[in-house]
Amino acid sequence: MTEYSTAHMPLATGTRPPGPRSRPGSRLLVAKSPWLKFAIRRAGSLAATFLALIVVSFLIVQLIPGDPAYGLAGANADQGDVDRIRHQLGLDLPMAQRFVNFVGSVLTGDLGTSFMYRQPVSTIIMSRLPFTATIAIAGIVTVLLIAVPLGMSIGLLTRGGRRSWLDAGFGVVAGFLDSVPGYVAASFLVVMFALGVGVFPLVPPAYAPRLGAESFVLPVAALALGPICTISRVVRRETAVVLENDYMRTARGWRLPAWKKSLKWALPNLLTTTLTLSGLILTGMIGGAIIIESVFALPGLGTGIIKAILDRDYPVIQGMVIVIGMIAAFINLLVDLILGLIDRRNLGGSHGIS
């Protein structure tokens, strides 16, 4: 019987050459799960953002002119008192050593102790965070609940060049309101509705504990006005584009109810672009909330960080910068999660996966 050598026989299509096969492991699991790939990628992004905020928050206080030790020592203190305070605060250490100490403390969850109040920075932040969080979250929810339906309604009413007066008027009004800075809108609302009509209270809720949600109406309105105009204009434009697609023409040919056409086919297809842009706008609203707090004298992170800068309270500045930056990062993460739930292809690297 003739023996044939298989050493030089061509391999069948799709087979592997002899040798140890790779065992199914983490790489195979990651390749099959777009959500796991997304989680790993975003976890790395959050970690990089956190480390960048640590570096930036440390370096930014070095640019603030003046020495906090002189302010703490008082006007009548001599140089010996100033040096003693600098030593107590660790300001006499080399910058590299201070940076290493700062990074080590933050990574262990310790944001330091306030120079002015001698309290843990985390305690100060937690006492002010509810005011900023209330304004920011309420503002974001208000923007999404008003801007998306408003933009869709204008897009539906002006479809195919209809009601051109409405389209032009909406563009002019939205463009004008969008150009008004937040602090100007806040000041106008205070003069009009607090000092003038007197519908809403002007006293911050921290100083009038019995006041309720009405104390936040004007700050939220001032914060949300500009983003509502921006996002509604984007939604109007995306609605006009979606309505001209073939599947929308087919839906109109089937005589489907208007609400079903809008919610089932138009809304999901315009949300991807809208939410992508909204993520950037909503992140910027965190910074806007800081300015709005100053106008309304709310005891949130905004007024806290401004006071800390004036007092040269380095640990408070650093802690608040890190917290505000991470809040913005988590808002972006939430937007990406929503986009992934709408369409898994938005997770990245998952095209074609059902």
Rank of each mutant, 00 (worst) to 15 (best):
N101A: 12
R344A: 07
R84S: 03
R233L: 07
A224W: 00
A186V: 14
D246E: 14
W165K: 07
A77K: 03
S26A: 14
L46K: 07
R249Y: 12
F58A: 08
F115P: 07
V56T: 13
G171W: 08
N101G: 13
S232K: 05
G161P: 10
A221C: 01
P17F: 12
V61I: 13
L280M: 14
I353D: 10
A240W: 04
L280V: 15
A69S: 13
I291H: 09
G182F: 02
A138F: 01
K264A: 15
S153T: 14
I54R: 00
R41N: 14
L267W: 13
L36Y: 12
M9P: 03
S127P: 03
G175H: 12
A138P: 03
R84H: 02
D246W: 13
L339N: 07
M248L: 06
F296S: 09
S105K: 04
V121T: 04
L59F: 09
R42C: 12
V121E: 00
F193G: 15
R162V: 15
L339M: 04
Q318C: 02
M116H: 01
D110E: 03
E3K: 15
F131A: 03
L195G: 08
V55Y: 08
G196T: 09
I146G: 02
A43N: 11
A224L: 06
K37I: 11
L72H: 01
P219F: 00
E214W: 01
L218C: 06
S179C: 15
G14Y: 02
G71L: 02
P34H: 06
P120Y: 04
L301P: 05
F50H: 06
E293A: 05
I309L: 15
N101R: 10
W265A: 08
A258S: 07
R163P: 10
D311P: 09
S45M: 13
A77S: 09
A185R: 11
L339F: 10
A308R: 04
A77F: 00
N346T: 12
K261V: 08
V295H: 00
V199F: 11
V56E: 05
G80T: 01
L202I: 03
S105N: 12
T142V: 10
G74Q: 04
V191Q: 13
I146A: 03
S22Q: 14
G139L: 06
R255E: 14
M116G: 05
V180Q: 11
P227V: 14
L166Y: 08
A222I: 05
R23N: 15
V172T: 12
F170K: 06
P268M: 11
L195W: 10
P299K: 00
D83P: 01
L263V: 15
N332H: 01
M9S: 13
N269G: 15
L277K: 04
A289W: 01
S179H: 13
